[in-house]
């Protein structure tokens, strides 16, 4: 839609504009120790620039034809991206966490649209339900009264914003090149051949169309089968990892507490 408004602008220009706008908007939005009118101005400017950048990226991305699946994707991805940006730039960590929850919702939507129903739900359940709540607990435990000074300044905002935008530009460039010709740097033997589409006789591209349907049909059962079949060992390792993390956190907490002297002296392992 938007791209149709700007038919004459080449994708390269769009991408460059998007990167620049992203950097500028992030820089403007990041807390830089400003206050009052200046802060408000830069916030507005940043928001506008950010929207413009989004528009650029949307335009460089896929030409969205109609409503349906793609429109849904556009909406949820916009939610995810805007909420993510807000997570990064919001001063108050509490609001930041809430924005992050919003971004999670958007990401879950994106995953759903992309055909990963289980993952979308899992993201909501695990992240928003468990991890994020943990974050909020910690925030409530640890946050000082009022807005801390370190929340109002950033570490090297300009350089960070530019670095992030450049990274985004490179990634977008690579992604945009996927359709035409893969850059040498990411040319990999078999997969790139499939992506580049220069092998008409290759059966994989045909499977790609079918693959989408393949993944949708009987989704969770087959994912479970895959997970506990081919990747059983990895699942076990992940379980061990979780256990280790659990025990590690408890150990660190108890040792630090005893070091503070608030708890009885160091405990010994029971033989």
């Amino acid at each position: 839609m938007i791209a149709s408004v700007l038919p004459t602008i080449s994708p390269g220009t769009l991408l460059a504009g998007g990167v620049t706008a992203t950097a500028a908007s992030l820089w403007l939005l990041l807390p830089r120790g400003q206050s009052g009118a200046a802060e408000r101005t830069s916030r507005w400017l940043g928001t506008l620039l950010g929207l413009a950048a989004l528009a650029c990226f949307v335009a460089t991305g896929h030409r969205l034809g109609g409503l349906g699946e793609e429109a849904v994707f556009l909406i949820v991805s916009l939610v995810a991206v805007i909420s993510g940006a807000a997570t990064v730039v919001t001063r108050s960590p509490v609001y930041s966490a809430i924005w992050f929850a919003m971004a999670l919702a958007g990401v879950a939507g994106v995953l759903l649209v992309l055909g990963a129903q289980f993952l979308g739900v899992a993201t909501i359940v695990v992240y928003a339900g468990a991890i994020l709540v943990m974050f909020l607990f910690v925030l409530m435990l640890a946050a000082p009264a009022g807005l801390a000074p370190y929340d109002r300044v950033s570490n090297e905002p300009l350089l960070s914003a530019v670095a992030g935008a450049v990274l985004l530009g490179i990634l977008s460039l690579s992604i945009g090149r996927l359709t035409a010709e893969p850059p040498l740097c990411c040319r990999m033997p078999s997969k790139t051949a499939a992506i580049a589409g220069n092998a008409a006789a290759d059966p994989v591209p045909a499977a790609s169309e079918a693959g989408v349907d393949l993944l949708i049909e009987n989704h969770v059962a087959r994912l479970g089968g895959e997970l506990f079949g081919r990747h059983l060992l990895a699942v076990e390792v992940a379980g061990v990892l979780l256990l280790v993390a659990l025990i590690g956190s408890i150990a660190i907490v108890s040792r630090a507490a005893s070091a503070d002297g608030t708890v009885a002296p160091a405990r010994r392992a029971v033989p």
Partner: peptide
Amino acid sequence: LFSLGLVGILARRN
């Protein structure tokens, strides 16, 4: 999303 997260990691102090 990745780039935004990176900027946040690099810039935010909290």
